[in-house]
Amino acid sequence: MSERLEAVNIVIPNWNGLRFLPDCLASIERQQCLDWRITVVDNGSTDGSAEYLRKAYPQVHLISLPENRGFSAAVNAGILSSVCPFVFLLNNDTELPPDCLYHLLNAAAELPEFDFFAPKMLSFHERSILDGAGDGYLRGGAGYRLGTMERDSACYSQPGPVFGACAGAALYRRNIFDSIGLFDEDFFAYLEDVDLNLRLNRSGCKGYYVPAATVYHIGSASSGSKFNPFTIRLSTRNSFYVLLKHYSLPLFFRFLPVIAVYQFLWLIFSVKKGHCRAWCQGIAEALANCSAMWKKREEISRHDRLAMAEFAAVLLQAERAAVASIMRRRQEQGKGNSLLRLYKNIFL
């Protein structure tokens, strides 16, 4: 291998995750790749996480933030703490099989033309169910973890190029952050990795899915549940941040029908879950920050390597992958796909 296996900084953001840390850190210690460093960034935890790490894991590099500054700020602090050629972002509510890092780093060494790598994420409690197999994209303004809630199958056992990676478990070449910047801290949490995936693709960086590398993930450990006022508000706001940062006016009008469809369905979903107020708060925050996000779009464009038509084609392919995955999941659950077929026929 041309790059050293040990040159990886494992960055774990933590907020009141003491109950998860022992299993997560123990699984890292069992890795076949022995020379790594662990950086835990504690986001002002009040459950004794920092004290536990100082006592039980003095070898871990602990960065203690005085307050909860969100996922983006935490991982940024971890990324900046090291010059290791690779960064492995990892949620605290995960467990790694012993060969996970080996397979990821081996893929990185054998595929120098790729810049980031997505493992196969499986449900922690039901390990035949996928949590994600790389990320797709919905042009209405959201990401989608391919394979999520589907039963693991042969179609998710094939390695290959992928649009994006879930930042809950992803390997990145460290130099890409020097090139395009870190995670956007204005997102705080949710869709910050969607924003990064878009920036990476716009800059010509490429991702690769490595199914031999598996990660067991609990999911929604910090927020407590997948859908609550906090997640609805931030997901709504950040979806518009994504649109404002990455769609030029011509691209926005080109995608306006799919944007309208997605955002309307997200509104209906939010109301159905009883979180209409949180949705409204998200919209209000997005409107208040329109100008700031528009300025960021101008800054991002300096790193563009794809023409608008090329970028639009990449997004179309990423949405096709996402919709195909959604349809497989619904079919497994015995649900109909007539509306999705109609959407596919019209827009894809």
Results as ranks from 00 to 15, higher is better:
Met1Val: 12
Val11Asp: 04
Ile12Pro: 07
Asn16Gly: 07
Leu18Pro: 02
Ala26Pro: 01
Ala26Gln: 14
Ile28Lys: 06
Ile28Gly: 07
Gln32Cys: 09
Val40Ala: 10
Val40Gln: 09
Val41Ser: 03
Gly44Asn: 09
Gly48Ser: 02
Ala50Arg: 06
Glu51Gly: 03
Lys55Trp: 11
Gln59Glu: 15
His61Gln: 14
Leu65Glu: 11
Glu67Gln: 15
Leu80Asp: 14
Val83Ile: 08
Val83Phe: 05
Asn92Tyr: 06
Tyr102Ser: 07
His103Met: 08
Glu110His: 10
Leu111Asp: 01
Pro112Asn: 04
Pro112Ser: 05
Asp115Met: 01
Phe117Gln: 03
Ser123Glu: 08
Phe124Trp: 15
Gly143Ala: 08
Tyr144Cys: 06
Arg145Leu: 13
Met149His: 13
Ala170His: 06
Leu182Phe: 10
Asp193Ala: 07
Arg199Gly: 06
Arg199Ser: 09
Arg202His: 04
Val210Pro: 05
Pro211Arg: 12
Ala212Arg: 13
Thr214Val: 12
Gly219Lys: 01
Pro229Leu: 07
Phe230His: 12
Phe230Ser: 02
Ile232Trp: 01
Leu244Gly: 01
Pro250Leu: 10
Phe252Met: 11
Arg254Tyr: 13
Phe264Gly: 11
Trp266Lys: 14
Lys272His: 10
Ile283His: 00
Met293Asn: 14
Arg297Met: 14
Glu298Lys: 14
Arg302Glu: 12
Arg305Trp: 03
Ala313Gly: 11
Leu316Pro: 00
Leu316Asp: 09
Gln317Ile: 00
Arg320Tyr: 01
Ala322Trp: 03
Ala322Leu: 04
Ala324Leu: 06
Ser325Arg: 09
Arg328Met: 10
Lys335Ile: 01
